[in-house]
């Protein structure tokens, strides 16, 4: 089926990097496909309330998985799994109570969100302040960080064994480059001070004073070297 989802130009002229998101929103694609089928007269009779409920269920399950899944570093999102389920159940009940499919699903979602969002926001806020959630997340985060560290060390070691530069090797080189840049920056700044900063030209007296300090410094160095040679 050709549909508007697969064709058409991107939204406006792209600026900035394109960013792909985890896709917990499969429902929208399915809606779209269902719309296409409906228009073609293929599916109107077969699209029952049960299927709509199933789609909501899948969407929220996907959302919960997308937000909580994978890494412990996003642990607080994972704490909301039960909340997403409650919200899905609320939508399912709402859909079931209506008993027909006369309302556009997106409009249904907007109406449902408008009517219930404040309550859900309060529930989420309370949930995220709970001691058990805080402790569980701290634990999750700690485990994630430890595992990641181990994995990183193992990868570094493997790359080292294979004599392939690792990420930290590259970072080390980049750091040296930054160090060189910093030195150049200081020279540039010194020139800037001279050009813009109203630096006064050196006088014969200031040059003589500098010469005396240099002589003193050389004398000290000579004495230190002599002492070291004797020692």
């Amino acid at each position: 089926m050709t549909n508007g989802f697969e064709t058409g130009s991107a939204e406006g002229s792209a600026a900035g990097e394109e960013k792909k998101y985890a896709d917990p929103y499969g429902l929208y694609r399915r809606w779209f496909e269902a719309w296409g089928e409906t228009v073609q007269g293929e599916a109107r009779a077969s699209m029952g309330a049960g299927e709509i409920e199933e789609l909501w269920r899948r969407w929220f399950a996907g959302t919960a998985k997308g937000l909580g899944g994978g890494s412990g570093k996003d642990g607080y999102a994972g704490s909301l799994g039960s909340l997403w389920e409650q919200m899905a159940e609320s939508m399912r009940k709402e859909t079931a109570s209506r008993g027909d499919l006369s309302e556009d699903p997106v409009e249904f979602f907007l109406r449902w969100y408008g009517e219930t969002s404040e309550r859900w926001a309060g529930v989420a806020d309370d949930l995220l302040k709970k001691r058990e959630v805080l402790e569980s997340n701290a634990h999750l985060q700690e485990n994630f960080a430890r595992s990641y560290r181990e994995l990183r060390h193992a990868s570094e070691q493997n790359l080292k064994n294979m004599q392939i530069p690792s990420r930290s090797d590259l970072a080390g080189v980049a750091k040296l480059v930054v160090g060189v840049e910093n030195k150049l920056d200081r020279i540039e700044e010194a020139f800037g001070e001279f050009v813009y900063g109203g630096s006064e030209p050196a006088t014969a007296e200031s040059v003589r004073s500098l010469q005396e300090r240099m002589d003193g410094l050389e004398g000290k160095m000579d004495r230190i070297l002599a002492a070291l040679e004797k020692g």
Binding site: G4, F5, G8, G12, A14, A15, E18, K20, Y28, V106
Partner: peptide
């Protein structure tokens, strides 16, 4: 359909703007 396509693209590809 066009509106659905538009919204779906934004959700999948991320918002783009100058």
């Amino acid at each position: 359909l066009d509106k659905y396509a538009r919204g779906t693209r934004i959700m999948l590809d991320g918002a783009r703007a100058e």
